Amino acid sequence: MKRLLITGANGGLGSICRDRLGHLAGTLRLSARKGLGEARANEEIVYCDLGDKDAVEALVEGCDGIVHMGGQATEAKWETIRNANIDGMFNLYEAARKSSTKPRIVFASSNHAIGFHRQTERLDAKSVTRPDGLYGISKVFGEAMASMYHDKFGIETACVRIGSCFPEPKNHRMLSTWMSYDDFVLLIERIFMVPVLGCPIIYGASNNAASWWDNREVAYLGWQPQDNAEAFRAKIDAEMTPPPGDDLNALYQGGAFCGDGIHED
């Protein structure tokens, strides 16, 4: 690619993309509302509020690919979610439709789009959405937006329902949802390498022995995650007691998001 746009490039995963995806394009265009520091070699920085339609159109123009990590990243008030994750998604896809390059998009969806499924269920791309909060609802909306813009306008998107992408899993629930940074980067590489992408739903998790998710429908991507959260089970067992059976973190795939309040993924 000539130019790859990374939105939310100052966030946790956006920063990983900035550090590790430079080989995919001649220029990385990095965007956030603030806090990106100085541009490095082969980078350009464009500050942008996703709720600003005209600014988003200018941001997207000339980009061959977009890794959309921007937006509200956890549960919040509706006004906050609406600006970034609802209006912002519409603005991004309208900008892609109008652009001269028709970029391929990686959309950071979330496991919270299906969070109210029980942990005893095994899900695939055809499983019904069961969002566990306003944040999860915004991700279902984003997936629907991607689907319509693909069917109507040919904009290709990988909707990645990211589980828990951290250096290592932090608790027993994450033994099922964890995705390593290496597997995350490998997935994005494969998304931009395949000749035809379409608009798939992809569960963003490593090759975890305790996984609840089945990615067989996206085998054509050639993504083969290498890491397994099981390597951390003994450490987690030593640090904490597993949640009781009636705890949200033991009942639902979305864990504590299925209750009240704001929680980390």
Rank of each mutant, 00 (worst) to 15 (best):
H68V: 05
V140L: 15
G136T: 12
A108L: 12
E38D: 15
F232S: 02
S109A: 12
N42I: 03
G12D: 07
L21P: 02
G198V: 07
Y220P: 14
A256R: 14
P200A: 03
M174H: 10
D214K: 10
G261N: 11
P195W: 06
L197M: 09
N208P: 06
G37A: 06
A76M: 15
A210C: 12
T80S: 13
C63T: 12
L123K: 01
R82T: 01
R97N: 08
V128P: 00
S100Q: 04
D265R: 08
D214W: 11
N228S: 05
H150S: 09
R216V: 01
K77F: 13
A205R: 09
G62I: 01
I66K: 00
S180R: 02
L134V: 14
K102P: 09
S176D: 11
V46T: 11
L187F: 07
Y181T: 02
N215T: 02
G65T: 04
K53D: 06
S206M: 07
A210R: 09
M148F: 07
V128F: 05
R130G: 06
L134M: 15
N207A: 14
G11N: 09
A76E: 13
Q253S: 09
I105W: 00
I188S: 00
D183H: 01
L30H: 07
A210E: 12
I81L: 15
Y220T: 13
R130Q: 13
R216E: 05
G51I: 03
E61M: 07
K34H: 08
K152H: 06
L123E: 09
L175E: 10
H150Y: 13
H117R: 04
L36A: 07
F257Q: 12
I155N: 12
W78E: 11
K2Y: 10
A125H: 08
K126N: 05
E230K: 13
L59R: 07
G14W: 08
I262M: 11
A238S: 15
E217K: 10
R33P: 13
T157P: 15
R216Y: 11
K235M: 10
Y47V: 05
A256E: 05
D182H: 10
D52I: 03
T74G: 06
E57V: 01
G88H: 04
W213G: 05
D64W: 08
S15Y: 07
G115T: 14
G88D: 11
A84M: 14
W223S: 12
